[in-house]
Design a protein around this nucleic acid. Sequence first.
DNA 1: GGCACATATCTCGAAGTCAAGAGACTTAAT
DNA 2: ATTAAGTCTCTTGACTTCGAGATATGTGCC
Lengths: 182, 182
Amino acid sequence: MLDIKRLHIDTTTTLIAMEDEVDRLVAAWRRERPDLDVEPLEVLSRVSRLARHLDRARRLAFSEHQLEPWEFDVLTALRRAGTPYQLSPGQLLTQTLVTSGTMTNRIDRLAKKGLVERLPDPSDRRGVLVRLTDEGRDRADQALAGLLDQERAILAELSRAQRGELAGLLRQLTAPFDNIPG
Amino acid sequence: MLDIKRLHIDTTTTLIAMEDEVDRLVAAWRRERPDLDVEPLEVLSRVSRLARHLDRARRLAFSEHQLEPWEFDVLTALRRAGTPYQLSPGQLLTQTLVTSGTMTNRIDRLAKKGLVERLPDPSDRRGVLVRLTDEGRDRADQALAGLLDQERAILAELSRAQRGELAGLLRQLTAPFDNIPG
DNA sequence: GGCACATATCTCGAAGTCAAGAGACTTAAT
DNA sequence: ATTAAGTCTCTTGACTTCGAGATATGTGCC
């Protein structure tokens, strides 16, 4: 059985690894189900749990700018599109991985707050274009800066080289999902 | 600026790294906001996106056992506790990272399906103990085996050593959240 | 042109989550 | 004993999401 904590110590050479919830979870499964190989949990349970912690941290970071995470997701998708900061609702939903009903609702609420506006698509009368207002762009830019500051603090646990390595390993796992449409 | 794809190639030595959505997202930010250092996104956006993909995959794996992901989370927390498979609602919420209102609702629904039962705590009359029924235990065991099979398939992208390294790096990020109560 | 099918967006109702607070009980200090 | 503060669980109401279907427009074939 692979001893992951030991490997970790080998790579850092300075500190004893701190235990986390997943170490306790895996130990519990090995006690209760010694017949099963639970090694996959060492990676994927950490991914899921870390994502939950990140959601909470993001919510906190955005609250300083009076933005909800879902608002940030939509505004930054438009911001990344570049000037004139316009996308169709359909393009927005493929980027944010939500359903069309949800996106309609989100656009309604963002428009009511004056952060986006709906325009008729000149080339397709079924369609609509969603455009970022100036205030929407500024709010997105400010929130992004705040988010990056907070993420840097979380990642300070790792050296630059370790962050690069981690990003590369994660890419190997995400690439199949992102490239084989699933 | 750190070139993460290059680092990745160095560590694998066999394959060209495939691009993923985060590479495209980061490239868009570097075009639109060249003044910002968006390196943190290389790690943490991948964590969030991978977690979303995992949620979908888990939902699919569990549907073969007529279980929702939230049901699995609660049942397995009890299963891991070991015989007699009892925990308080409070212990369950620290393990599943949901709020107390949500947990009350979940216990209600699981009890209605006959997978858990509520018992008065003999040592604290404010308290309740939630106990797994025999059927609940069997369903949890079956779903866990299915989940592990699926996770092994996702992780087949990585060598055993890479999985160990990834687990160790992730632990360094999760440990502060898990140990400093946040 | 007219018909069938595809596409884009919106509407609506059901379901789950959260946050805040209420109610019941425990603990510790006086 | 009594009081105050703390703990544990449940209740409530607002909010967001999803999924299915409705409406309007576009596209291609005959």
